[in-house]
Amino acid sequence: MKPNRIVAALQLAPASVYYSALFGAPLLVLVAYSFYTTENFDFVPEFTLDNYVTAWTSEVYRTYFIRTLRISAITAAVIAVVAFFYSYVITYTLRAHRSLLYFFVLVSMFGGYLVRIYAWRSIFGTEGIANSALMSTGIIAEPLDLLRNGEFAIIIAMINFYLPLGILPIYAAMQNVGPGQIEAAQDLGSSRLGAAGKIVLPLALRGVTVAFVFTFIATAAEWLTPQLLGGTEDQMIGNRIAYQFGAGFDWPLGAALAVTLVVVLAVLLGALFTVVRRWVR
């Protein structure tokens, strides 16, 4: 081995060991478990594909997967749009105040996750702040279903939780697009919005894609938010996976569901990257 390759391998070693131990190995264990058989509430190493057959063919799990992907896609898309414009404002419009605005993004990550879920609980609900305010001002006579526990509440809360995760990569990508390029577009007759769409968006598209991907992955694995803010038919696949690893006593099925989720996400996001790469070209 050449000396520079030895140095490269040594430099990679700490991160490789770290990820192998804390990410790679657990994932491999999960994959191994997904081929196990469950007998008498115990999982035994007898190879079977039954867990995947159940995960892929059961109408129940298909419903959970589709709901999960729908909720995550909506959440990630909204985050990508909001994060793009927020980053645009920080970077170009209110550049003088960008430290403060950037600080606001970080501050929103300080609140405890659970605390924020409970804060949203007080906003949504039949007599939550949202419905009460609308009813007290006479805008509505009856509580709105939309503002009760349900999918809308889950999406709004997750947008709040994960928005910083979307802003950070887009903001970083925009640092490579100088204000001069926008000014040039405007000098050539483009509006501010037009410049954002035609100049900044294509150049920062990788950042937007990463923002979408980060938040899509994170929200697809959610289980606590739907549990606390969802209605009785709004649980996501994460809730079922958690259940199978607990009172369901069926780790192999839980593992197959988890691996399936990883595969589905990888395929969908792979397709997204391919489309984006072609578009950027």
């Binding site: 390759r5 990679l12 490789s16 060991v17 192998s20 131990a21 190995a25 491999l28 191994a32």
Partner: peptide, 26 residues
């Protein structure tokens, strides 16, 4: 990266997996 490094990594991963699986019985 050379094949040796990749092969070494694969062996390390396999050993890690074997060790972890050995401790993972129901």
């Amino acid at each position: 990266m050379s094949h040796r490094v990749i092969r070494g990594g694969a062996i390390a991963a396999a050993l890690t997996l074997t060790t972890v699986l050995a401790g993972c019985t129901g």
